[in-house]
Computed example of a mutant assay.
Amino acid sequence: MIRSLLYVPGTSERFIAKAHERGADAIVVDLEDAVTPERKVEARDKLAETVAAVRRGGALVFVRINNDPELLLPDAQSACRAGADGLYVPKVGDPALLAHLAADLAPIEAALGRRPLAFVPLIEDPGAIFDARAIGRGPRVLALSAGAEDIATAMGAEPTPDVLRLPKLLIHMAAKAAGVLSFGLLRTVADYGDRAALAAAAREARQFGFDGASCIHPSVVPVLNEAFAPGEAELDFARRVVDAQADARRDGRGAFLVDGRFVDAPILARAKRLLALGATVSSKTGGRDA
């Protein structure tokens, strides 16, 4: 379960030093947009130190690499050797790019005796949106995510929630069709000042089935952790659904009522999934509220 992914600029010693204290489920070390062109090689060369530093709190570590032909493979190789868990791959237009990356990394991973890096493709232009389902089925894909600002720019549009809603939902549906995770809110993450709006957007995203979201400011992490974790009332109802199903099965009934609500197979499946999610949250927080 990955509820929150905190971006950290790969050249910011201050943010890197504190990243492990923020409570994010994952840290994304950014070598792309957050790093100026003249410092990209420097950020890459420090990855071993950076990955070790941000991992200290137990978070997963991803590296957002550059899609520039001169930087793509060296960035990915360095992230692999540094011990990152996965790559955020920007501007993915088709699964061939992911296959290219996987083929290049495989011998390095074998030599290191390490697990293969997972990929999170970023869908960042209108054409890629329509190919998102194929991208989601590409090699090593853990999740899909939208590059909201880039999509809006490519459309000649403003990154308002109304503009971003349809493209983000299309990418989300592609992720679910491909059986991978879906990260995001139905708005841009760049505007993080309005906490109430962010909390509402995170709750809405979870209702739509998003699994978590990224953020660029540490103050947003607890908002995401809370929104993407089930509440006690939800868990209580889910427990009673599962308990009632056992009684109904003994009576030979496939459908039944709980609190006056009709329950059948899809609702039972959601209840079981919710309880599994709740157990995962509890393990992350040591039994404390998420």
Rank of each mutant, 00 (worst) to 15 (best):
V263W: 01
C215G: 07
A271L: 05
P230T: 08
L274G: 03
L275M: 05
R240V: 09
V220L: 05
L277F: 13
E204H: 15
R253T: 04
L268S: 11
L198T: 10
F237E: 00
A276S: 09
G212E: 06
A276L: 09
A276F: 04
V263A: 01
T280A: 15
R206M: 07
E226L: 12
S214D: 11
T280L: 15
E234V: 02
F208R: 13
L198E: 06
A213D: 10
Y192A: 15
L235D: 02
D243L: 08
F256D: 03
L275A: 00
A279D: 15
G212M: 06
L268E: 11
P266F: 03
K272A: 06
T280H: 15
E232W: 00
A244L: 02
R261T: 08
D236A: 04
P218F: 11
F237M: 05
V223R: 03
R240D: 09
R195I: 15
D243K: 09
R240L: 07
A238I: 07
A248C: 01
D236I: 03
V241E: 05
A244Y: 00
L235Q: 02
V242M: 00
G260I: 02
D236V: 05
L268M: 12
E232Y: 01
R253G: 07
A265S: 14
L274N: 09
Y192R: 15
S282Q: 12
G231A: 09
L268H: 11
T280K: 12
V242G: 00
Q207K: 10
R270V: 10
Q207Y: 06
D251F: 06
D211S: 07
V223A: 03
V258G: 11
F237Y: 03
S219I: 13
H217K: 11
K272I: 03
P222N: 11
S214T: 14
A244Q: 02
G260F: 04
A255D: 09
S219D: 15
R273I: 07
A202K: 14
V241C: 06
F208G: 12
